[in-house]
Write a protein that binds this DNA or RNA. Structure first.
Lengths: 258, 258
DNA sequence: CGTTCCCTTGACACCGATCAACTCTGGTGG
DNA sequence: CCACCAGAGTTGATCGGTGTCAAGGGAACG
């Protein structure tokens, strides 16, 4: 079931037969019809490639399209006055970058590609019309938005009240759960193309301290992190250590209602 | 324009002639018709009072109504394993407590009244029907949801990358801007019914350190905090000190489009 | 007039930041 | 094939901000 895809695998354009992670995610939450799924695949037809370290969308601009991650990793971030950076979300294949900008106008933060990325560009009007006459798909899109919000809350808790090693452990637990949902976890390991500096910017620490924190997690026998891939040796132990409760991701919540 | 209302003022039931803060908020963002506004006022007709320190909604329950703050303050919070608490949002008059629960199911966090509060109870079905045939109101509700999300991101930045006194200052700037939007700021001061412990739980510090932090802000001549009310002596100075950019609140964004 | 929160203050411990140097790795070009 | 280089990871020494613990003060309230 879980399909491992390294960044170097050839990936057909979304909609041309390749696995569509957005469909996988929405389909896990709601009971989508084939017509619903095809409609989702269709809007992902126009894909652009973005080089690593390049902004997909910059702060202050008003994008004329909605962007959807098709392949690769990206991060929402905000620069602070003193020059430091805070990442507020990791964007994985199947995630929306800026569903909100249709309503809110200018971006109040930037989105940067962390790896070479493929991003689908969807015209606003197409995105607005998508859920019309498709109530279950509408619910699924709402679900995705609200889970994103729940993830933001969990980050606040993580950064505000947990110690350094717990923070990093909690982040790994979240990423494992989210990647699993879109089929990007293979057994107990998955690609984790994040430098220690990126992790630091996500959990509110410095790169040096993230390094020491990772050593601790390794010494505890919880993880192996090497070559851009993370192996979780003891998922229960890691979750326990981090105080991770997957409930906030609301997996399968919608499905259970039907 | 700005109306100061202390918690002890008599407040008529929403819809019975009193100022409706939700209408004020949504009306500031979108161009609502009188019919739109009346519809919003109508759904706030059933109000219940909650005592301070009592949960309005507890973690794990599935509320059978949508809750809207009518009067008083509340906080979203999550308890952490070690017994500490993290507040992830302050809920002010006009804010939705749990618009998401219709879709997501169980609450993944609790909401507690920080003062004696009045909360409107709206049946799910009534809430779902509200925006039907009222496109501008639908946009306004989306706007409110997305601004809440933007506030969550700004909290992550605040807690993750700012020093203690900047964090508290930034929180004060946010509350000032949000309260002003619903007409609860009078000149340069407003009610701030928060103990130092509550502030600490919101910005990821300890009560003792919040105390020292407040002293610093006072010494800098930026604020006066006394008797449950905050006076901002130098709003530009405070915003500068905190690195506060009100842009993320997207005030009047929708209105400007029309 | 006592009780109960809440605020305040001081001494001290410790976690994580900072600064600086060194290592390791992978990629590039001679 | 090797030399070089840039980026990332690692380590050590030290600093400083925030947490912790404990005691005292003050205001609201019954």
């Amino acid at each position: 079931m879980a399909i491992h895809r390294s960044p170097s695998d050839p990936c057909p354009l979304a909609g041309a037969g390749g696995r569509n992670h957005l469909v996988a995610k929405l389909g896990a939450a709601a009971d989508l019809s084939d017509e619903d799924k095809n409609a989702v695949v269709d809007i992902c037809s126009q894909v652009r490639e973005i080089a690593a370290r390049h902004d997909i969308i910059s702060e202050g601009v008003r994008p004329d399209h909605v962007h959807i991650m098709v392949e690769g990793w990206a991060a929402r971030y905000k620069m602070v006055d003193d020059g430091s950076r805070q990442i507020t979300a990791f964007l994985l294949p199947g995630d929306f970058c800026d569903l909100h900008v249709t309503i809110l106008g200018d971006m109040d933060h930037g989105i940067v590609a962390l790896t070479p990325a493929k991003v689908a560009f969807v015209p606003h009007q197409v995105m607005q019309d998508l859920p019309l006459g498709r109530p279950e798909l509408l619910r699924a899109l709402w679900w995705a938005t609200l889970v994103d919000e729940a993830v933001l809350r969990s980050w606040i808790v993580n950064i505000g009240r947990r110690k350094s090693s717990e923070r990093v452990a909690h982040l790994f637990c979240e990423l494992q759960a989210r990647l699993k949902l879109v089929g990007l976890v293979s057994g107990d390991h998955f690609d984790l193309p994040l430098t220690q500096e990126i992790i630091a910017d996500a959990v509110g620490l410095t790169p040096v301290h993230v390094n020491r924190t990772l050593q601790k997690l390794r010494e505890l026998g919880l993880i192996v992190l090497r070559g851009g891939a993370l192996t979780i040796l003891d998922i229960d132990g890691l979750r326990d250590f981090a105080g991770f409760d997957p409930n906030y991701l609301h997996r399968g919540r919608l499905a259970r209602k039907h």
